[in-house]
Computed example of a mutant assay.
Amino acid sequence: MSNFLRTTICAFLLSGCTYANSEPMPYKSWRLGFSAPNYMEVWIESADVVDIQDQVYPRAMSGAASILTPPNSSGDPRGWPKRAGWGKGKYVTGADLPKQIYVRWQSLVEPQTYQMVINISEATREVMRRGEKVFCSADGKWITGYREAVAVRLVPGGIAKVWVTGPCMPPIEVTTVKAVIDPRGPYEGKSGGHYRPLSAVSKAYVEKFGVPYGSW
């Protein structure tokens, strides 16, 4: 676990605040997923979770974020999606609902290393607990759906937008976070400043069109 995360957790615990809710989570586990705009490749070094019981789940997610790289630079990375997807990720097994999510990632098109803490409000957790009747067109059935997934979109410049969503459920935007640059660089300075390589198709797009800062 990084020193940044340890400091954040300790500061929160020493504050004496608690937001744990006695109402149980209505599903076995919730999902954490990440995406990035077309060609704007991201490598997640670590996404660590603190749940409402103050339990820490290090590296709840790591690796590449979900992304599309259409050939011939035909995709458009600008702006936020009209309907956010779940992103690439996994279920945080054993965890209660999230209180904080620490993310450290490499924005490969810049390249730059960012870190941030996403604070999940009690209002957001209430949305995640609340069941809604929803029609699933895929199988033609009405179900009780839950927004059991936290979807995070990471973009160049260190901006992250967060939604909660679920099967057959429309996503709800809950927060936007501005990350800080880690001056140590990738892998907490342990790689000698070397970033993961950008794919050829993304490199070709950036060389032709640049990074569309200001569109997010």
Rank of each mutant, 00 (worst) to 15 (best):
Y146D: 07
D182N: 12
V164L: 08
T8P: 00
R125C: 03
W80G: 01
A20T: 07
L68Y: 11
P171T: 06
L154G: 01
P26W: 07
S62E: 14
Y91R: 07
I120S: 00
A65C: 05
V117D: 04
A160H: 02
A95M: 09
V180H: 04
K141A: 06
K203W: 07
H194G: 03
E110W: 03
W105P: 02
T93V: 15
K90P: 02
S46P: 03
K99V: 05
G85M: 06
Y39A: 01
L32Q: 00
F34I: 10
Y213K: 05
E122Y: 10
P212K: 04
D182M: 01
P71L: 05
L32E: 03
T69V: 15
G189W: 02
G75M: 10
H194M: 12
D96F: 02
K203D: 15
A200I: 06
F34E: 02
R184H: 05
V155H: 01
Y205Q: 03
I143A: 08
P167S: 09
P77A: 06
D54F: 15
D48P: 05
A138V: 13
G16R: 12
D139S: 04
L68K: 12
D96W: 05
I159M: 09
V162N: 02
G131V: 14
V150K: 01
M25F: 05
T176M: 14
L32V: 03
N119V: 12
A36N: 03
F34Y: 13
D139F: 09
E23V: 14
P71Q: 06
N21T: 06
M116C: 13
I101K: 00
S22L: 13
N3K: 11
S22C: 08
T93F: 05
R130S: 14
L198E: 07
R104L: 13
K141W: 00
T124Q: 03
A11Y: 09
S46I: 08
I101D: 00
Y57T: 11
P167I: 10
Q106S: 03
P186T: 05
K133N: 13
A151E: 02
T124P: 04
K190D: 14
K28I: 08
T124A: 10
S35N: 11
A149I: 06
A20Q: 11
G79C: 09
T124F: 04
E41L: 04
A204S: 12
G166C: 10
G75N: 08
D51V: 10
Y102A: 13
G185M: 05
Y19N: 13
W163D: 01
A11P: 00
Q112K: 11
R184L: 12
K190P: 03
L198T: 11
P98H: 10
S15W: 02
V117Q: 02
W216R: 05
E23M: 08
S121Q: 12
S2T: 15
E41I: 01
G185I: 01
P26T: 11
G210S: 08
A47L: 08
G210Q: 09
K203N: 15
K190G: 09
R129W: 06
V56I: 15
